[in-house]
């Protein structure tokens, strides 16, 4: 089985966001594999172990993403591909999906797994956009996948309920928390990771011009949410409190 995983290098969940000159600064920041993509990697390895085949982990990003690709290889992926997008202007979800679509154009694949969202931009668009471009079905936020021949049975997290879906391969799925418990890379895995193939592709290699994929999104402003003020405890009996709450929501917060 040909299994592919879409992976993104993102800020560590514990990093504090700092804005400098209108941009989010990545000075001294710790990077990780996007946590949802870790679920996808783990599931891909399990599918490979159960059905045979190969797992290729693909990222669109800067050179530094090689570190996270190596970690994915240490976890057990077989090969890695880094598509360099450093020359892409204002790259957005549209750009990334275009680049990935160009990469997958001449590939044979049975399953492509990605994270449900990335923990930085959180748009959740890459998976669905790519599936659409490749003309294959996609199921998002899966918490279970079983494959039998060219048919997959999936459980999908539908806002807390479970939807059971059958789909045919080739298929793209995105992983939700609860799909699995990602493994730690083992020491032998870490030692082997360096010897596994890691291919670096430029846009040229995909017959793309950087202008073909420059972003379609315009960023108007980047700002932090307002600092959380101190909480307030309303006094009095429930009636008075309710009246006061409505008054505050209307007059102070101006939300009703």
């Amino acid at each position: 089985m040909n299994i592919y995983v879409l992976m993104k290098r993102t800020f560590d969940t514990e990093e504090k966001i700092v804005i400098e000159n209108g941009c989010i600064s990545d000075d001294g920041v710790n990077f990780i594999i996007n946590p949802y993509d870790e679920f996808a990697i783990e599931e891909a390895i399990r599918l490979r172990d159960a059905h045979g085949g190969e797992v290729t982990v693909v990222t669109v990003g800067a050179e530094d993403a090689e570190k996270e690709l190596r970690t994915a290889l240490a976890m057990g992926c077989d090969r890695a591909v880094l598509i360099n997008n450093e020359d892409v202007e204002d790259g957005d979800q549209w750009s990334t999906a275009e680049i990935l679509a160009a990469y997958f154009k001449d590939k044979e694949f049975d399953v492509i797994l990605g994270g449900n969202v990335s923990n930085d931009n959180g748009t959740g668009q890459i998976g669905p956009r790519l599936a659409e471009k490749l003309g294959i079905p996609h199921v998002s936020t899966i918490v279970k996948i079983e494959i039998d021949g060219d048919k997959a049975t999936l459980e999908r997290d539908a806002e807390g309920d479970i939807e059971i879906i059958e789909a045919s391969l080739p298929l793209l799925v995105t992983a939700q928390q609860g799909l699995n418990e990602p493994r730690y890379p083992s020491l032998p895995g870490i030692m082997k990771a360096k010897k596994k193939p890691l291919e670096v592709l430029e846009l040229d290699d995909l017959d793309l011009d950087e202008d073909d994929v420059s972003g379609r999104t315009e960023t108007v402003e980047v700002f932090l949410p307002p600092e959380k003020g101190a909480g307030r405890i309303l006094e009095g009996d429930p009636d008075t409190q309710a009246r006061e709450l409505v008054r505050l929501l209307r007059n102070e917060a101006k939300v009703i």
Partner: peptide, 10 residues
């Protein structure tokens, strides 16, 4: 090295 960093993280 990359291996050291991965091991440290793990």
């Amino acid at each position: 090295s990359d291996e050291h960093r991965m091991l440290q993280k793990m």
